[in-house]
């Protein structure tokens, strides 16, 4: 499964949701499908996209939040899974694209390439709904189920370690940040 195909498969669901992504390929690929003011791309600070999603979900409990995370980022903040589980906001869907690689910095293999199982780690941390998927059909079904479940979900999507040719886009970091804040204020 290609990550961009997974993003494309659920893109129409994201129109009215609050979306936070990690840096690199995830941010560039989602932007390539069409940026929206409700999308925020955390272009650095690896590990904190899920924490940002938690902060938004706890303070806007009536707004559905989706975080598009990655294996490298989750591995930098494994403790954050326990914090997500502790507060388990019902309005947060946490997707982890696991390509077993630190793709944007040269493709070095992460520990998921040698057997570390992020869905199992999330479950053991106490996340109420967890799962792992390998095909677009499975991903789309699991994503839709997570949106309608009304319970915190960490969904690990195993994807190929390929990404876009470049990661810098013409959307400046601060333009994105203030536009996103204005969007949240309007909801």
């Amino acid at each position: 499964m290609l990550r961009i195909d997974a993003l494309r498969a659920v893109y129409d669901r994201l129109e009215h949701l609050v979306v936070v992504t990690i840096m690199g390929a995830v941010a560039a690929e989602l932007q390539s499908l069409g940026h929206r003011p409700n999308f925020f791309y955390l272009q650095h600070a690896m590990g904190l996209a899920s924490s940002m999603g938690l902060g938004i979900a706890l303070t806007k409990p009536d707004t559905q939040v989706v975080v598009f995370d990655g294996d490298g980022s989750v591995l930098m903040n494994l403790g954050g899974l326990t914090t997500l589980a502790r507060y388990r906001p019902k309005n947060l869907v946490h997707v982890v694209f696991d390509n077993e690689s630190l793709l944007s910095v040269g493709g070095f293999p992460t520990a998921t390439s040698t057997g570390s199982d992020l869905a199992a780690i999330a479950a053991a941390a106490g996340i109420p709904r967890t799962g792992a998927v390998r095909t677009i059909a499975e991903f789309t079904k699991a994503f839709d189920e997570a949106l309608s479940a009304g319970a915190l979900t960490t969904l690990v999507a195993k994807v190929d370690a390929v990404g876009p040719a470049q990661f810098v886009t013409d959307l400046s970091l601060l333009e994105n940040r203030f536009q996103f804040q204005r969007y949240l204020k309007s909801t």
Binding site: F40, G47, S51, M52, G55, I56, T59, R177, Q181, L184
Partner: peptide, 9 residues
């Protein structure tokens, strides 16, 4: 990260 999310919200 949590404070950043709260601030933007």
């Amino acid at each position: 990260g949590i404070s950043a999310g709260a601030h933007l919200a």
